[in-house]
């Protein structure tokens, strides 16, 4: 059985209201995850219920960048302090109003926000994959396009002979 999961996009301003709503409905926040994508940093909040299981609700905030601020949900869910501090240390997202704030010393790292650094190999791979995907899509479209004009010709003039036979008949005529 696969885990039932739903993904919703929300805005930075909706983080606290979503947390309040989920808490009122008896769910708890089970983790906060940041991802570096092409369009910026995504922050995902996952919620799950206490009793029974109706699925994991994931709320994603898209398009943040290093240095942006998001509010802390530690007043509702104190157990999230490691993940909010991690978001700050590894991704450079400033989380405001944290109850337990390590002020950048949660992980002692060699450089700031290392998870936002995308290596050149990874970029090349993604470019190549995109090109391959685009090429395959174009090929698919071309195949679809080629198949439909051929079908049109066959339906409009079924008595038309093939060009080969026409040539032959003209050369035969010439040769005589």
């Amino acid at each position: 059985m696969t885990v039932k999961q739903n993904y919703h996009s929300i805005d930075v301003s909706q983080i606290l209201t979503t947390a309040q709503k989920e808490k009122d409905e008896g769910r708890r926040c089970i983790q906060i995850c940041c991802t570096t994508t092409d369009d910026g940093i995504d922050v995902m909040y996952s919620y799950r219920d206490f009793n029974g299981f109706s699925g994991v609700e994931n709320f994603v905030v898209h398009g943040l960048s290093k240095g942006d601020e998001i509010p802390s949900i530690q007043e509702f869910f104190p157990s999230q302090f490691p993940f909010e501090n991690e978001a700050h240390d590894l991704f450079g997202i400033n989380v405001t109003n944290m109850k337990l704030d390590f002020e950048g010393n949660f992980y002692k790292l060699g450089e700031d926000a290392p998870m936002t650094v995308i290596s050149t190999e990874q970029l090349k791979r993604k470019e190549r994959a995109k090109k391959i995907a685009a090429a395959m899509k174009a090929k698919q479209q071309k195949q679809n396009a080629q198949q439909s004009p051929v079908a049109k010709k066959e339906t409009s003039s079924p008595t038309q002979q093939s060009p080969g036979t026409n040539n032959k008949s003209s050369s035969e005529k010439k040769g005589e």
């Binding site: 983790q31 991802t35 570096t36 490691p82 993940f83 337990l100 791979r125 190549r128 994959a129």
Partner: peptide, 22 residues
């Protein structure tokens, strides 16, 4: 999270001890 290549875009493992720290 996948990104079309053989390499994952993101892999997140949230372990139980992190939840229990509080």
């Amino acid at each position: 999270l996948g990104n079309g290549t053989q390499y994952l875009e993101r892999m997140r493992m949230r372990t139980p001890s992190s939840e229990n720290l509080a």
